[in-house]
């Protein structure tokens, strides 16, 4: 069985959707985070590791998630794996960010 990312010759596929979208800011920032984390002076994450983490997503998730959704999920997995961040830390920060925005928008 090929891995879910191993798409060459995958059966039962339809036409190619040629619609394109301008990357949104969070997508660009996800890209930027990877570029920075993999830069020669940081070497926190290698692109090879990013690929491996993306391929390790559950097959259904791989097929339904957006491109940069896969990336940020993989970046998170690798940062936790490498003990750079913890999941609890990220969860807490995400909550704070949401709360902060709620305050700002209701002021």
């Amino acid at each position: 069985m090929p891995g879910v990312h191993d798409r060459g010759g995958w059966p039962d596929v339809g036409p190619i959707n040629k619609a394109e979208h301008e990357l949104s800011f969070w997508e660009k920032r996800t890209d930027a985070l990877l570029v920075l984390l993999s830069s020669a002076d940081r070497r926190v994450i290698r692109v090879d590791e990013l690929r491996r983490a993306i391929e390790s997503l559950p097959p259904e998730a791989y097929e339904t998630m957006g491109y940069y959704e896969r990336w940020i999920s993989a970046i998170e997995t690798l940062l936790i794996e490498k003990n750079v961040l913890t999941k609890a830390e990220i969860d807490r920060k995400a909550e704070q960010i949401v709360e902060q925005r709620t305050i700002e928008t209701t002021e």
Binding site: W26, R29, T30, L33, L36, L37, R42, V44, G66, Y68, E69, I72, S73, I75, E76, L79, V84, L85, E89, I90, D91, K93, A94, I97, V98, R101
Partner: peptide
């Protein structure tokens, strides 16, 4: 913010706090 936007914001903020970027 969508779930993924929250994750990007949170991860970026933490990496900045830790001085990685």
């Amino acid at each position: 913010l969508t779930y993924y936007e929250q994750r990007v914001e949170a991860i970026q903020a933490l990496l900045i706090e830790k001085g990685l970027l």
